[in-house]
């Protein structure tokens, strides 16, 4: 039996296994080529040339070199204070977000507000604002309110209100309807059903999300400082501008320790909640 006959015999047993349909292969290769073209175009658009990269990495090497040994520059107290301020911005921003998100979350929950128009509108508005990054909020608020922690708090609050409201709404909607029904069946008024049928189920979820957002906002609070909204980001930005990278390294290390401590504390609390 010739090779070709063998192949044809196998193909007859399992159509498509030997002679893969040409369209499948073409689709795969076209996809791959399109991907490669887009990737190359993007690469060229960004001017990621060898000389740029080589020069940049050389300079980055120098910067990393000046980072050792890290030093506080004799300003440890000031830096600790800045870290505390960053935490304060994160806390107040999260509180603002929670206060703003609670009523919106209630409006967005189908089982709390039966009117479909209301939660449709609330959800669409939240979808639009959910996409605005915190840094964009911070930039405009620093211009509006002036330098300092307050625009940072507002930026974090505004950025998180629609995100938290969506999560709160979902937590409320996920509440087991049977528990709510059983209270309704006792003759409880709606507020009683909300208090005992929904709240015990939704509150731990919401609190856990608040803590998660607090963790994330400690990062956001450092970022908004870069555009002038106080805290550790502001200190970092200053030192990067004057190329004091040994102090930058120190601040980054300090910050990593603070993030780790906060994350561990918050995660411990979150495991206790559930």
């Amino acid at each position: 039996m010739s090779d070709l006959a063998l192949l044809q015999q196998a193909e007859a047993l399992a159509p498509g296994a030997i002679f893969t349909p040409i369209t499948n292969r073409v689709k795969f290769w076209l996809g791959l080529i399109a991907f490669a073209i887009v990737f190359t175009a993007a690469w060229i658009d960004l001017e990621l040339t060898y000389s740029v990269l080589a020069g940049g990495f050389g300079k980055l090497g120098q910067i990393l070199g000046t980072m050792v040994p890290p030093t506080s520059g004799g300003q440890l107290e000031r830096l600790l204070w800045a870290i505390a301020q960053t935490l304060a911005i994160a806390v107040l921003g999260t509180v603002l977000a929670v206060v703003g998100a609670l009523p919106l979350g209630l409006l967005a929950a189908r089982n709390i507000v039966p009117n479909p128009m209301i939660h449709f509108i609330v959800r669409r508005i939240m979808d639009i604002f959910r996409g605005i990054p915190v840094l964009v909020w911070a930039l405009i608020l620093v211009a509006a309110v002036g330098l300092g922690p307050i625009p940072g708090i507002l930026a974090i609050g505004f950025a998180d209100i629609p995100r938290l409201a969506k999560l709160f709404g979902e937590a409320l909607e996920n509440a087991d309807e049977r528990q709510r029904d059983s209270l309704r069946a006792t003759g409880s008024p709606d507020i009683g059903v909300l208090r005992f049928g929904t709240l015990p189920q939704a509150l731990p979820v919401c609190l856990s999300q608040c803590l998660y957002y607090l963790e994330q906002n400690f990062r956001s609070a450092a970022i908004v400082g870069v555009v002038g909204a106080g805290g550790i980001g502001f200190e970092l930005d200053e030192r990067i501008r004057i190329f004091a990278f040994d102090e930058v390294a120190f601040i980054v290390l300090l910050y990593i320790v603070a993030v780790t401590v906060l994350d561990l504390g918050s995660q411990w609390l979150r495991t206790r909640l559930t």
Partner: peptide, 18 residues
């Protein structure tokens, strides 16, 4: 269909919500 996170006594007392 009790409220699992509440204690037994509170669950019984919820009968008087109305």
């Amino acid at each position: 269909n009790l409220i699992p996170r509440l204690d037994v006594l509170t669950n019984v007392l919820l009968g008087t919500l109305g």
